[in-house]
Nucleic acid binder design. Structure first.
Lengths: 118, 118
DNA sequence: TCCTTAGTTCAAAGGTTATTGAACAATTGG
DNA sequence: CCAATTGTTCAATAACCTTTGAACTAAGGA
């Protein structure tokens, strides 16, 4: 069961920029990029805002084509749509992520993830 | 006489993205990039929206640190703050401009500029 | 000086966005 | 089946954004 996503060529540049122009969503994208390849579920982002609000922001990211959301059980697995974004807007995601990487004013994600100890 | 601009390190990434996430403003930036080096005055953009509204959008771009506005006589000369943006967010402006260059859904600027005939 | 040109400011209207809490749905473990 | 876990939907609110027209300022030319 998959939620509605735009196709790659339905992704609009102004819309992507507008959606990334929110500190909470930019923090989500930065974190997704830092764990790229690993699908994360929503709860990972609960220190950014309330559950309700998170649902709203993740829907915005999905509807803009920035993320892909897959429903698995009661979870939603979130991934960056890097391939589609790189094809549509070469270099954009990388430069945004690089710039966001240095940005101490963005809210931080993490601090209570379940890490595997060695 | 210069209008208030943020310093380079006051430029905020989310703010820049949000400001570029408006089709009118993105069209302005795309056009500025296509005429880079040439300071343009506001009237250049009058086919995008009303004079009042243009004043608002250009103020947004200036306040976000995307453009520099210099008052000369009754004119305002607008330039892209490429150096500052490139220093703060390497590659971002280029990828945005490249992506916008292909975007037929953005409003077009120009059509009545005074071109020098050969 | 008077008029025109270039652009700003203001207040108002209308739209969209972000955030909240309460209620809901769906899956999973006991 | 029951309860807990995960996340969504809804309605409400407050804040912000965009757009407008009318009124304004400031510089330049006749």
């Amino acid at each position: 069961m998959t939620l509605p996503h735009p196709t790659a060529d339905q992704i609009s540049l102004p819309n992507v920029l507008a959606v990334l122009g929110d500190p909470t969503r930019l923090a989500i994208v930065r974190y997704l990029a830092s764990k790229e390849g690993v699908p994360l579920n929503c709860s990972r982002f609960l220190d950014l805002c309330s559950k309700t609000n998170l649902s709203y922001h993740l829907a915005k990211l999905r509807e803009a084509g920035v993320t892909r959301t897959e429903a698995v059980g009661t979870s939603r697995l979130i991934t960056l749509r890097r391939d589609d974004l790189d094809r549509r807007f070469p270099g954009l995601l990388d430069s945004v992520i690089a710039a966001a990487g240095d940005d101490a004013s963005l809210p931080a994600v993490g601090g209570h993830e379940i890490e595997i100890s060695a």
